[in-house]
Each structure stands twice: as structure tokens, then as C-alpha cells.
């Protein structure tokens, strides 16, 4: 019976797998560090928000970015002409909670249906750091600098992808189909 054979195969396959004896200790240490980083980030956010309260009115009106080009606080200041905002997709629920926006020809899904498009996603997690390990944990790709930003780049099936850590706790990912990626990456502004 296949179910029985499967269980036997899975049992044999994992028989030698064991956790490291110090796993709980390492996890607790890491959780403590993350807790402190989160608290520090919250404190910093409060200070920056107070500064922004004063600063924003001073610069308002100076080339303001349309509201639908601000993704979780990240400004998309350049988009190729002719693209329109597609309906939002539900966010991923995993260890990198993300918010995405898509602009495409006709407002469709270029990654599925064809056509041109640009997608910008912002992922936040206290675990994200500007290190090769953190970028590898997020995804895969070749190290590359684009528009002065160091990150990971991939080009597969006509989809060009670049993602980087503009600051700890945040990854920005830009995907392009049939459109130039670099000007969009160059035009990404992460306030603060």
C-alpha cells in the first residue's frame, strides 16, 4: 500500500536527523536580540515620526509622489510610461510579511498573462539585515549593484528581479517584464 510505503520511506529518510543539543539556547539568545532590536526600532520610529511631523510640511509640494506609488512608505518615483496600477494581491503570510504593487499594460498580470509590467514589493522583518546571509535567506540571485544599490539580481523566463536591503528590517524587491528595471530601482526612495 502506497501510504504505508510512504511512511516507511519517510521514517527511514529522517531516522538520522537530530536537533543540535544547544538549539533551544541559541533560539532564546536570538529571540532576545530580536526583541531588543524591535524595541530600539520602535523608539527610533517614534523619534523619526516626530521629526517628520515638523519636516513634512516644509517640503510638501516639492515633486510629491502620487499616493498609489507609495508602497508601505517606500516611494516609487519612476515608472515607465503607459503602465497602470493593477489590483492588489493579498500579502504573503510568512516570515517576511510583504506588501506589493503592480503596474502593467492594461492593468493585467504580466507575470502570468503576458504584457509589460513593473512590480515593487516591500518586505519587513526584524530579522532582515544588510548581509549576504540575510539576502540569501530571502531568496536567490547573483550579487549585483544597480543604481548604487547592492543586492541580488536574477533574470529568468523574461522576468528581471532585483532586491536589496535599504536599511535593516526591510527588503525592497523590484520585478520587471518588458520594461527597464534600473530606472525604477534608481527611483525608489526610502524615507528616513
Amino acid at each position: 500500500m502506497l501510504e504505508h510505503d510512504l511512511k516507511a520511506a519517510m521514517t527511514a529518510e529522517t531516522a538520522d536527523l537530530m536537533i543540535a543539543p544547544d538549539l533551544a539556547e541559541r533560539v532564546e539568545q536570538r529571540a532576545r536580540r530580536t526583541r531588543w532590536r524591535t524595541r530600539l526600532a520602535a523608539l527610533l520610529a517614534t523619534v523619526l515620526a516626530a521629526a517628520g511631523w515638523w519636516l513634512v510640511p516644509q517640503v510638501a509640494g516639492m515633486g510629491a509622489v502620487p499616493a498609489d506609488q507609495i508602497i508601505d512608505g517606500v516611494q516609487v518615483t519612476h515608472l515607465p510610461p503607459g503602465l497602470i496600477r493593477a489590483p492588489d494581491e493579498p500579502p504573503d503570510e510568512d516570515d517576511f510579511p510583504g506588501v506589493s504593487a503592480l503596474w502593467s499594460t492594461g492593468g493585467g498580470k504580466p507575470f502570468v498573462d503576458g504584457g509589460d509590467g513593473i512590480s515593487v514589493s516591500v518586505y519587513r522583518s526584524a530579522d532582515i539585515e544588510n548581509t549576504p546571509a540575510s539576502l540569501d535567506e530571502f531568496g536567490a540571485g547573483e550579487p549585483r549593484e544597480i543604481a548604487g544599490k547592492w543586492g541580488r539580481h536574477g533574470m529568468m523566463m523574461g522576468i528581471e528581479v532585483f532586491y536589496w536591503v535599504p536599511r535593516p528590517g526591510m527588503i525592497v524587491m523590484v520585478m520587471a517584464v518588458g520594461s527597464e528595471l534600473e530606472p525604477v530601482v534608481e527611483g525608489i526612495v526610502v524615507p528616513g
Partner: peptide, 25 residues
């Protein structure tokens, strides 16, 4: 389970799908 599925989905977007390697024993 959900982390594994989400990571696999994200890798699928990047078209770098882990094929899985047999254990080295």
C-alpha cells in the same frame, strides 16, 4: 509548513526552485 510553502513560492517567482538533494549519507 507555511514558511516552507511561502519560501518555495517566492523562489518560484525567481524561478530558482530547489530540486532537493538527497541526504549525503
Amino acid at each position: 509548513v507555511n514558511t516552507v510553502i511561502s519560501r518555495a513560492r517566492r523562489r518560484a517567482i525567481l524561478r530558482i526552485i530547489p530540486t532537493g538533494s538527497p541526504p549525503d549519507r
